[in-house]
Design a protein around this nucleic acid. Structure first.
Lengths: 217, 217
DNA sequence: TGATAAAAAGGCAATTCTACCCTTTTTGAT
DNA sequence: ATCAAAAAGGGTAGAATTGCCTTTTTATCA
């Protein structure tokens, strides 16, 4: 007694993965891939061009518009569509963030096809799919409820440039020269950033900025 | 006039990607996927169980035995098998390293299926496949021939602990206390490391150590 | 055991960084 | 036009860092 197939869309910037997965899922006869996209913007364009999917498989790291933003957009505009995050990251932060963005479940690309199909069927019926991976992270997040990455620290363009130049042997005076600003102004930036990042040293500042992903190595 | 199919193996820890890709390639009728594996060790086990593949599609990041090591093993034991690296990384370092390890080409997972099939056919005939991505990186690497990761800087256990403690607001005196050493000894460590990393500041030291992967955030 | 090298400890002047003060100028918004 | 906020400019005392030395202790091995 086969009911109607589950209509899904795949959003992932890896073309090979996207197409391969589409083939794999189509074989199951319970799932129909109605479209795919390489990023969130493409998804938004293609969404109105066919009947809405029941479930969207969503990658996290994508150009233009990433998985977090895309998921938030979906939940804002088509809350009835379920989003199942599908990523290679096993870390706490991306998992928690995807769930916070509105994903109803989180699967690893390391998973087996049968598990994925099972997750899709579950999420389609129940709006969410919680496996051990996700429940563990959820518990973890509640227990030591660190407002870690929640509060995104705002820095101005100048402050950001200053932070980047801080990752060097340059003295503040030299940094001031490079930015064509007075050393006193640089000192203001430094003090403002020390406060924002709750640190007391240049080294601590650089480490914090790196952890917040404001600067890269 | 169809000659024999090209026999390939897929080594990648993402089961969904591996299986999906296998389906995709099989459809082309020019390629036959004879086996797949989730890491290098599994590949080594499965390799003797069937006729050897002509080409192996190799991911980089895998548990147990990664793409670099697996490629070196292949080239050591079955030099006639061609290795095509298949990864999501576009950075210089992984590309150059895979080629140094013996891969004959490098494709992104963002590629289209047709391009991948073309690369496989080329590498099977010519032992290597150089696209714009790879040639650019090669040129780049020759031009500013940085001895990138070649020179691994040696640090003692104590120096390493010191480096880790440097990633903080702690003063050297506090670090000395934590390590139960005299501040003067800490000063010796500092000076030795400054010389090894060719830096003149604590911040520069921390950045260098991070870049060399000696410490993590 | 004595030689010797490495690790640890010590000292210190010069420079840089940090924490508080403060004022003036520029910018943005109403 | 006016007000508020942000950016820029200024200074100083004290703490930490940096660079360049020497001496003592420890470990090792011939």
């Amino acid at each position: 007694m086969q009911t109607q197939k589950i209509a899904i869309a795949i959003v992932d910037d890896h073309t090979l993965f996207r197409q391969g997965l589409a083939h794999l899922l189509t074989e199951s006869n319970e799932i129909e891939v109605i479209f795919d996209a390489g990023d969130g913007a493409e998804m938004i364009r293609k969404l109105p061009m066919q009947p809405l999917p029941d479930v969207i498989l969503m990658d996290i790291t994508m150009p233009v518009m990433d998985g977090y933003e895309s998921t938030r957009w979906i939940k804002q505009n088509y809350p009835q569509i379920k989003v199942l995050a599908l990523s290679m990251f096993e870390e706490d932060v991306p998992i928690i963030n995807m769930l916070k963005s509105g994903a109803g479940g989180y699967m690893l690309k390391q998973a087996k096809a049968a598990d994925l199909i099972n997750a899709i069927k579950t999420i389609e019926k129940q709006t969410f799919f919680i496996n051990d991976l996700v429940s563990g992270k959820l518990l973890n997040n509640i227990q030591n409820n660190l407002p870690v990455k929640t509060s995104k620290i705002q820095v101005s363009a100048n402050e950001l440039k200053f932070l980047e130049l801080c990752c060097s042997d340059l003295t503040y005076k030299e940094i001031a020269d490079m930015m064509n600003l007075s050393p006193f102004t640089i000192n203001n930036y430094r003090e403002a950033l020390f406060e924002k990042f709750e640190t007391k040293s240049r080294t601590g500042l650089v480490i914090s900025a790196l952890k917040c992903d404001l600067i890269k190595l």
